[in-house]
């Protein structure tokens, strides 16, 4: 009983309940929503957001924010796509290394600007958001990488796998989730990210190398955006200099804040973020079924971010209230 109560008191339970209620509500109107087919659709919608959300979660926990992930995704996908196009003789899995490496380099640049010059991440990444997008146009000459250049082995990763025919990218995204869980819960550096986010003044006094941790967090965010970049090529089969990854940051931030990661830093769980991503996936999958046009998606993401912020604030206030009650 006590265990059950503890589970229900957790933040993640609320999100899980929201997912279930949402699915039941949509299922009541359109029964075909509650089938394995739509589960497949939902899961295929989420991998890119899931991977981006893991990086963004770390950044937000460290009390920063990374707005440039969409452009990092676009740039690394574009360079990888051009490698496929102009050097088709290169073994295609090398693309993963290229994409992740480029993403990591761009993320590192964000981190350097933030730590070296002590600038707020929001302004730096607003600048690099446009900078990286512009670079994407320049390297690609504003030309799209078409379907025939993306290796079919890469594209099939989004179609199927030997394991129950569940596409590889779903395994990859959940694998990244597990890795992130291990990283934040069971490594020293992972815990230091939380320490840094909950009290940036105390963190260096406890011997935490603040600059190194910040650099690491931005680099991870970049590397994961790079991974999402090559998976974009796998999922959609093309890379477009203007569309690929644009608006990605808003989806990811929406998922992360619904997942209960506090924008004040120091609070957040991998499970919550995963559930946040799944909730967004459910919403995105339900819209066309309910006959709501795709143009509403952006408005819904915005509303979701604001609602999640309100919930976060209420939870925080209750936490403070219960603390002061306990003290009195």
């Amino acid at each position: 009983m006590n265990l059950l109560r503890n589970i229900f008191l957790r933040r993640e339970a609320g999100i899980a309940v929201m997912i279930v209620l949402f699915c039941i509500a949509v299922g009541a109107v359109k029964p075909q929503f509650l089938t394995l087919d739509s589960l497949r659709i939902i899961l295929l919608l989420t991998p890119l957001i899931m991977i981006g959300a893991m990086g963004q979660m770390l950044v937000i926990v460290a009390r920063h924010v990374d707005l440039s992930i969409g452009s990092m995704l676009g740039f690394s996908a574009m360079v990888t796509g051009m490698m496929f196009k102009f050097y088709p003789e290169i073994w295609w899995p090398v693309g993963f290394l290229v994409s992740i490496g480029i993403g990591a380099a761009l993320g590192l640049l964000n981190g350097v600007l933030v730590t070296l010059f002590r600038l707020p991440a929001i302004i730096v990444t607003l600048g690099t958001l446009n900078l990286y997008r512009g670079l994407t146009y320049i390297v690609s000459n504003a030309k799209q990488i078409d379907r025939q250049f993306v290796p079919s082995a890469l594209k099939s990763m989004s179609q199927t796998s030997p394991i129950f025919g569940i596409p590889w990218i779903i395994f990859i995204s959940f694998g990244i989730g597990l890795l992130t869980y291990g990283f934040v819960m069971h490594t020293r550096v992972g815990r230091q990210i939380f320490a840094l986010g909950s009290n940036p003044i105390a963190a260096p006094l406890r011997g935490i190398a603040v600059n190194k941790v910040t650099l690491l967090v931005f680099t991870i965010s970049g590397a994961l955006s790079g991974l999402a970049g090559i998976l974009y090529a796998s999922r959609w089969g093309f890379v477009n200099p203007s569309n690929t990854g644009s608006g990605f940051e808003f989806q990811v931030i929406a998922a992360v804040v619904i997942g209960g990661v506090s924008i004040n830093g120091g609070v957040g769980t991998v499970l919550g973020t995963v559930l946040g991503v799944l909730l967004l996936g459910c919403v995105a999958a339900a819209l066309p079924l309910l006959g709501i046009p795709g143009t509403t998606q952006s408005a819904i993401y915005g509303a979701v971010i604001l609602i999640a912020l309100l919930i976060d604030r209420t939870v925080r206030q209750q936490g403070i209230a219960s603390l002061s009650r306990a003290r009195a």
């Binding site: 952006s298 408005a299 915005g302």
Partner: peptide
């Protein structure tokens, strides 16, 4: 910062 990121998405979405 975060509020206006949310409203930025919301307003343009509407």
């Amino acid at each position: 910062i975060i509020v206006t990121i949310g409203t930025l998405t919301l307003y343009r979405g509407i």
